[in-house]
Write a protein that binds this DNA or RNA. Sequence first.
DNA 1: GTGAAAGCGCTAACAG
DNA 2: CTGTTAGCGCTTTCAC
Lengths: 339, 339
Amino acid sequence: MARQNPGSKKRVTSYDVARVAGVSQSAVSRAFRPGLSVSDKTRTKVMKAAKKLGYKPNAIARMLITQRSGMVAVIISSISNLVYPELLSRVTDQLSARGVRVLLFTLDHSDQLEELLEQVWTFQVDGVIALTAHFDHRDIAQFEEHNIPVVLYNRQVPDHPVNTVCVDHSQGIRQLIDLLVENGNKRFIVLSGPPDSDVANERRRIALEHLAEHGFADVPVLYGDFSYQSGKDCFAEWMQDHGAPDAVVCSNDTMAIGCIDQARGTHGIDVPEQMSVVGFDGMYAAFWTGYELTTVRQPVNQMAKAAVDILMERIENPDAPPEKRVLAGTLIRGKSARA
Amino acid sequence: MARQNPGSKKRVTSYDVARVAGVSQSAVSRAFRPGLSVSDKTRTKVMKAAKKLGYKPNAIARMLITQRSGMVAVIISSISNLVYPELLSRVTDQLSARGVRVLLFTLDHSDQLEELLEQVWTFQVDGVIALTAHFDHRDIAQFEEHNIPVVLYNRQVPDHPVNTVCVDHSQGIRQLIDLLVENGNKRFIVLSGPPDSDVANERRRIALEHLAEHGFADVPVLYGDFSYQSGKDCFAEWMQDHGAPDAVVCSNDTMAIGCIDQARGTHGIDVPEQMSVVGFDGMYAAFWTGYELTTVRQPVNQMAKAAVDILMERIENPDAPPEKRVLAGTLIRGKSARA
DNA sequence: GTGAAAGCGCTAACAG
DNA sequence: CTGTTAGCGCTTTCAC
């Protein structure tokens, strides 16, 4: 008991309070839980004794007996995509507002998922929100075995119903591409996030499909990793062997900004006059005057709220069936695409 | 017990495993703790039974008896300052690497600190890292009463020794200002973070002091809130009644970027040719080609590691005296200040 | 409305 | 090395 150093008094329990207040231990317990039958007199005595002793209920003991930890695990990986810090913040706020604490897990490599889940099981969290992580149906099956609800963000699991909240990628990307096509762009390239990212794959697939519907087939794709530098690198790579395209469709805002900086800085291309660039996410920096991206803003607040709503519902009622909630993004007509 | 829905089997405990393995319950407990004396034979039997039953040790029960939660609370407020997500990520990694979980708390208004601390006490966290929060000596005293170690980031508490890890603001800002003075800048303004921020106040004070040492007294100060928009607004406000200064000293990178965008975009000022702007932090976006800030980079990795080192040391040995660790930042000679 | 008593699932002496 | 035995601090029937 490393914390029990000399001069420090033993931690005060409900028994200590009971003794001082001259009531039973269970009276103390009741006094600290709202809505339980205790007389005002008793409650007053208890509170006075508690304050005097500096008593705080021990949440760990409560968890053990109630089988509820009051904690939710939030899994997040890349912070280089700047929309995720914002999202994490909103999710945390939503959970706090409901009296639930956040146990934060970062996941850098997907091969650490197994041990991360191991932690999740032992910590008896009431639920899990996966902001950025690839889950296959086996992972989801584990959650079902453990009877612990999980909500995915912008992700789905093939052949397996699962709670998920998604921005409407299809609607958002269609709007971006319609805009680009309307304005006469003809030569497109796509800067995609990495092939091992579900989000990147979906956004790329949708972009290519919609371009094809407009008659633009075989649009070239370059792969980055969602980072600013990869946006620069991809565009630089393209320019080695080709001329500037009319328009660049990027998987996220960070890559779009990298692409713009590369085009303007190194290749002397005027964005948007000579080339249009569109992103996705609507993160803070997308609105900076230097960029003013044409992009689709994810409704981060509503999505965070939806994710927490779905999760809390499943915690209260474990038999509720999996639910998918899709929210529309907002087209931002910025200045990175010719109008 | 909402989770105990019909068809779901009762949760499996070490007793169940013991029964199936044909050993005592304490043997199961030992088998799951590394470095405890168990024969290979027993361990094998236990593990086999555990796997068969899907047993996972219950961390809550362990916490209750060991008086150690294995959790550290991390308090963070503003995510608009983009260096904090990076820091949070590094701190979380450092803690995970030591087998400690992160209980995340966001603090939007300082008047919520009281109830936040209430949570901290009841959750029996082993320690606290405050990335962004103002603590006065009374708050620190509470930590001492509860015997729970705390480490502050870039903050100190007047008249009260406390564990803290700080970037060397004085050294960093001195370098920035020396650079500006050497290059002939004479008319300065300071864009400060909000007066209720310890970090803003320290950075402003140091900047003004060093400017005064160079003979520049009474340098005008405008107050923002560390955000991009406030950088823009402050500079716009200045330009209403004054001409462009030679140099703008900003409290952080985000404001510096806002200031640059405002100067270039609205006022047609060439940065750095006509005006120099310096920031502080060295966040990712500061390195983007569109800005390439002249700034001081906080050694985020080392600082995260230092904070965790100090905290873990205090958790192991509660009698260790408070420690202040100051790390030098790195001057980044970017392109936002004339060379 | 109140108190007594029985655990929640595990760890940590202590004997054997 | 193994099993027995007390609890950790609290919630929750159940009588009174």
